[in-house]
Design a binder for these strands. Sequence first.
RNA 1: GGGCGAUUAGCUCAGCUGGAAGAGCGCCACGUUCACACCGUGGAGGUCGGGAGAUCGAGACUCCCAUCGCCCACCA
Length: 857
Amino acid sequence: MTTTAANVPDKPSLDGIEARWAAQWDADGTYRFESPVPRDQVFSIDTPPPTVSGSLHMGHVFSYTHTDTIARYRRMSGKAVFYPMGWDDNGLPTERRVQNYYGVRCDPSQPYQPGFEPPFRGDPPKKHQAIPISRPNFLELCDELVELDEQVFEDLFKRLGLSVDWNHHYATIDERSRRAGQRAFLRNVARGEAYSQEAPTLWDIDFRTAVAQAEMEDRERPAAYHKIPFERTDTGDDGPGAIEIDTTRPELLPACVALVAHPDDERYQPYFGSTVRTPLFGVEVPVVAHELAQPDKGTGIAMICTFGDTTDVTWWRELNLPMRSIIGRDGRLLPDPPGGVDPRAYAPLAGLTVKQAQRAIVEQLDEAGLLIGEPRPIEHPVKFYERGERPLEIVTSRQWYIRNGGRDPELRAALIERGTEVTWHPAHMQHRYENWVEGLNGDWLVSRQRFFGVPIPVWYPLDDQGEPRYDDLLLPDESDLPIDPSTDVPAGYTEEQRGRPGGFTGDPDIFDTWATSSLTPMIAGGWEDDPELFASVFPMDMRPQAHDIIRTWLFATMTRSHHEFGRVPWTHAALSGWILDPDRKKMSKSKGNVVTPMDLFDQYGTDAVRYWAGSARPGVDTAFSEDQMKVGRKLANKLLNVSKFVLQFGEPTDGAELAAGVTHPVDASMLAKLDAVVTEATSAFEAFDYARALERTEAFFWWFCDDYVELVKGRTYDAARPDAANSAKHALRAALSSLQRLFAPTLPFAAEEAWSWWHDVSIHASPWPTVTGLGGDVTLVDPAIEALRLVRRAKTEAKVSQRAEVATVTVHAPAELHPALDAACADLVDAGSIRELTVVEGGSLSTDVLLAEPSAP
RNA sequence: GGGCGAUUAGCUCAGCUGGAAGAGCGCCACGUUCACACCGUGGAGGUCGGGAGAUCGAGACUCCCAUCGCCCACCA
C-alpha cells in the first residue's frame, strides 16, 4: 500500500461521498474480475438475480449488503472476487407487470402489429379493459419494460455500494440464459432426467398454467361440510341404510369415482367391494379401502373425485379408478358430462364456475331431499398458487418434469447427501433443506403455459391425423441454441409442414422461471460459452439467498448441478433473514409502512443503512430500525473525525518501522488489544459472520476513541518528549490503518473517504489488516483507563468540566497493577489534568480525587 | 401432526468452547475539553420465560413445560 502525505479536509463530511466514490470505483475498475484466475485464488458468488418486475424494498438492501460485506472482505484478503449481477426478468411476474403497466394482455391468436403503441405507459385507469395483443407484441413490451426496471435496480445497487463487477451481468431471459437453459434441459432429456407426461396437475385457473409443488401455499379458507347420502345398489336403499359422506366440495359429485374408507374402519368393512350410486347423477361407484382415508374426518368415508385434491390423485392412481373430469382449464365445468353421468342432471351445470356449480348442486340436492341437515361451516387449508387468487384445481394435461427425487428414493437420498457437502450459514438452515427434500411427493414440473420465458426446445412429429407423437421427440442441435420452436423449424422439415398431418408442431410451453434460475451459477459462470471463466469460478464459493426460497431456488440449483456435474454448485449457502416491521410483523406493502431505500440513503447516508443491515446476525429475521441507522451515521462520522485527528499529528519523526517505533508499553498494549480484534474479525468473516466482525471492530473502535486516544493525546502533542510522542504516533496510525480496513466491508464509503486522505490506492484494493505481533501486554492499558474513569466520575459528580484541574489523585491498587499504572502515569496526569498523582498499595483499584479550587473567573 | 428457531435492561440485541450479568438506543444529570454537538462524561435500570437435573460453579450443558415466530404436511 502506498502512503501519501496526509491530505485531510478541514471539515470532514459524509455528504455526497456515495456518488463521488461510486464514480471513482467505476472509473478505476476497482471490482473488476478478469479470468483466467486459478480456482483456488477466486472467491465466486452466485448472486441472487432479483425479480426486476417487483419493487425495491429494504429486504434487498438488507441481504445484498450482507453479501457485499463478505465480498469486500474476501477481496481485501487477497481473493479475486467474482461478484456478478443477474436480473430475473422472465416469467409470470414480468407478464403481470407488463399487463398492468401497459394495459394489455397477451392473446396468441392476435396477429402481430409492427410498431404497436400500447395505450398506456404506467398506471392505466382501473376501469380500463386490457387490449389483446399478439405474442410477439407482448414479448416486445416485456423486453422494453424489463430494461427500464433493470436500470432502476442498477442505480439502487450502485448507490448501495455493492462491489459487483457490472461487466458480469446476465438476465434470465437473455440469449445466454436461454441457451444455457435449453442446453441443460436437452442434456436432462438425453440422460432421462427430464420427461413429459400426461397427468393430473395442479392448475391455476386464472393464470391458466400448471403450477409446481414448490410454488403452492396453503391458505385458510371458509368452507362447509355437506352431508350427502349414497344409495346402496345391493339394497336400493337410499334411506337410513345409505352411506353418508361429508364433503366440502359437493360440486364435484358428478366427478365422483369411488367412496373410500380406512381398511381397518369397522363401520365400513361390510361395504368394501360393494357399489353405491351417486345422488342426482346416478353413477355406480365402488366402495374401496385405503390407508390414507382418515376415520376421524367427516363421517370417516370420503368421496373420491377426479380431482378434488392431491389425495384424490393418489387414490385414483393407486386404486386404478376411472377418470371423470368435469373442470376445465378455465375453472368452469366442462360442456359435456363424463361418461355414465346423467346428462339431464348435468346440463344446467355446464359452463358454470366452481362456485356457481356448488350453489346449483346444493340447491338440487336440497330440493331432492338429499342434503342431510344444514351445511356445517369450517375453516380449512386450501392450496393456492403463491401468486394466485383462486384455489388451485387439478386438471389433466401434458407437462414436462425434471426428476428431483420426488418419485425416486435413491435420487432423493443423493440430493440430501449433497446437502451435507454444503456449509450452511446459519447451520440450522440445512434442516429446512432436508425437510423439504424428504417431503417431496412428485417430480419437478418445469413447463408453464405462459409466454415470456425460455421456450421448451422441443418439436413433435404429427401423425397422419395431425396428432403429436409425444414419444418421438424432434430435438435441436446444441450448437443451434437458443431456439424458439414456434418460429424455428426442426431439421428435415420446412415451415410449410408446421401443424400439418405428417409434419411437426413446436412445444407451445415455456420453462418455469426456476428452471432457468436454477442454472445461475452456470449462466453467470459462462458454462460452455466461456470455458476459461467457468474453470475459474465453478463450483462457486457462496450462494447468498433468503431462507424462504430454499425449497425453490436453492434446491433446484442443487438438483441441476447434481444432474449435470455430479457435484454441488457451491460450497457455502448463506441464508439471510426477513425484514420485519418494528412491531415484528413481516413487512408488507398492504400495511403502508414500506420505506423506500433511496430515501433512507439520502437521510442517513448509505453507510448508515449498511450498518443497520450489517448488525443483523446471519439468517435472523430483523426489525427495521431507523435508530440503528442513526447509530451507523454516528459511527461513520466518528470514523472520519478520528481519522482526521490522528492524521493531523503527522508522521512520526523517527523514521522507524512500527516494531521499533512503538516504545511505550501503553501503546503496545493497545496494539495487542487490536491484534485480538483483528484475529476475531478475520475468523468471523471467514465463517461468513459479518455481524460479529462488525460488533468486535465497533466495540474496540469506541474504546479506542473514548479511552485510548483520550489517554495518549497529551503525550502525542508533547514536543518535549519526542520519543514518547513518536511511539504514540506510530501506534495511532497503525491502529487507524487497521480500523479503517476493518470497517471497509461494512462502511465502504466512509472508510474509503478517510483512507484516501493518506493513501493513493483504494482501501477496497488494499490488504486486509493483519496482527502487528508486537507482543504487547493486552492487560497493561486497562488499569490506567480504569483510573481515568474514576477521575472522570469524580468530576462528573462534582458537576465540573472534564477539563477541570485536579490537585491530587491517589490511586489505590494491588501491587501487581503498579507497573501498569506507573507506565501510564504521565498519560494519566495529562488526560485528567492532574497536578499530582500517587499510586499506593491497596486492595482493589480505587482513587481519592481532590479537585483543585476553581480559579477565579 | 412433523421439523426448526427464539425467549437476557423500557426497546433492539451481544454474551461463540460453563468461571463475579454486557452494548447501543431511550431516560436522567453534568459538561461547549484545541477531531467530532452527527460531541463528551457519568448515572439509574435485569432473581437471563418457568421447572427439574448433572457440576465446586449455569444465561450458557441435559430433560420437561410455556409463549411467540417460521418451514413442512393429505382441501373428505
